[in-house]
């Protein structure tokens, strides 16, 4: 007799189906539609609007890494992906996912605010890029950290969208019991957003750094030696964003200070580095909001 499918298996089945047609965020969708429908839109604007949407950014990288053969390393740069795929292909791809969102008419999220999720993702992206710069990363590799930060919580989208009632309980219990979100996800859904994120990144062939960042940003010590410094910086940016409370993706329970201290130590950094980072992050988010809101005003 076959065993009944486990909670995790049932969850995974629905998640796998959802991942294939995951819509872009409603926060960016108007600007995406405006940019992609305008034949004279600047390529810089196209690149920028995609780089502000974790789902679209992931989809563009998915396309480039699944279609192209013989690349020595996975492509993690949107700039390079746009050059390789061409503006039309990228616009068509972006439109197809923006339209999914429009058609659903319900917003990508049901439990916490999509705008808060977007702000948190962007905050982690900007912080990760800054930390990489401090660590001496080259200009182009800093963008890899930005993308990793932007995409790190992608695994929450299917959980949020596909299991809204259970996910509401996950958030409530995490908040009430002051326990990590991912622990409650595993208890109530059988799987956490890290595993879902890892699954997405694997399916989209995003490369080891991104796969590990999505899968282990709460446990960078479990990452292979090669990718650990990368994931540790992304984890640090995530904890820092939670400390600042710029946006939120539901991680409200953790005591962030000891985690940040530990991650700073692991990265060979100290608290001074974080002193001015908050202003930079806020400025980047404000600029992004202006960029996106211009379109709302037509």
């Amino acid at each position: 007799m076959l065993d009944a499918p486990s909670k995790a298996d049932t969850c995974l089945k629905r998640i796998r189906i959802y991942i294939a047609r995951m819509p872009s965020l409603s926060t960016t969708v108007t600007k995406v539609l405006e940019t992609c429908n305008n034949p004279k839109a600047s390529p810089n604007d196209l690149n920028r609007v995609i780089s502000l949407d974790p789902v679209l950014a992931g989809q563009v990288l998915r396309l480039i890494n699944s279609a192209y053969y013989g690349l020595p390393n996975p492509i993690t740069s949107l700039t390079r992906a746009i050059i390789m795929l061409g503006l039309n292909t990228v616009k068509n791809l972006a439109l197809s996912f923006a339209i999914l969102e429009t058609m659903s008419g319900k917003g990508a999220f049901r439990v916490f605010s999509v705008n808060d999720f977007w702000a948190h993702s962007l905050c982690v992206a900007v912080a990760a890029r800054h930390l990489a710069m401090v660590k001496g990363a080259s200009v182009s590799s800093r963008e890899d950290f930005f993308i990793a930060g932007l995409l790190h919580d992608l695994g929450k989208i299917p959980l949020n969208k596909q299991f809204p009632d259970q996910y509401r309980r996950v958030l409530d219990e995490s908040c009430n019991a002051q326990r990590p979100l991912q622990d409650l996800e595993r208890e109530l859904l059988g799987i956490d957003h890290c595993s879902v994120g890892e699954l997405i990144a694997q399916k989209w062939q995003l490369g080891a750094n991104l796969i590990q960042s999505l899968g282990y940003h709460h446990k960078p010590d479990n990452v292979s030696q090669t990718n650990r410094p990368f994931v540790t910086l992304v984890a640090l940016a995530n904890s820092y964003a939670n400390l600042l409370k710029i946006g939120t993706a539901g991680d409200v329970a953790e005591n962030h200070h000891p985690i940040i201290s530990y991650l700073l130590e692991q990265s060979g950094l100290d608290w001074k580095i974080l002193k001015n980072l908050g202003d930079q992050v806020l400025e980047a988010i404000e600029k992004a909001k202006i960029f996106l809101e211009i379109s709302h005003k037509g």
């Binding site: 810089n44 920028r48 390079r80 050059i83 200009v139 182009s140 963008e143």
Partner: peptide, 22 residues
């Protein structure tokens, strides 16, 4: 395809350089 004109309001140095390289 990305702007290399430093007077362009949407100019982004990293994007311009990486575009050339790509």
């Amino acid at each position: 395809v990305f702007s290399t004109d430093t007077n362009d309001p949407s100019y982004d140095e990293a994007m311009a350089k990486e575009g050339e390289l790509a």
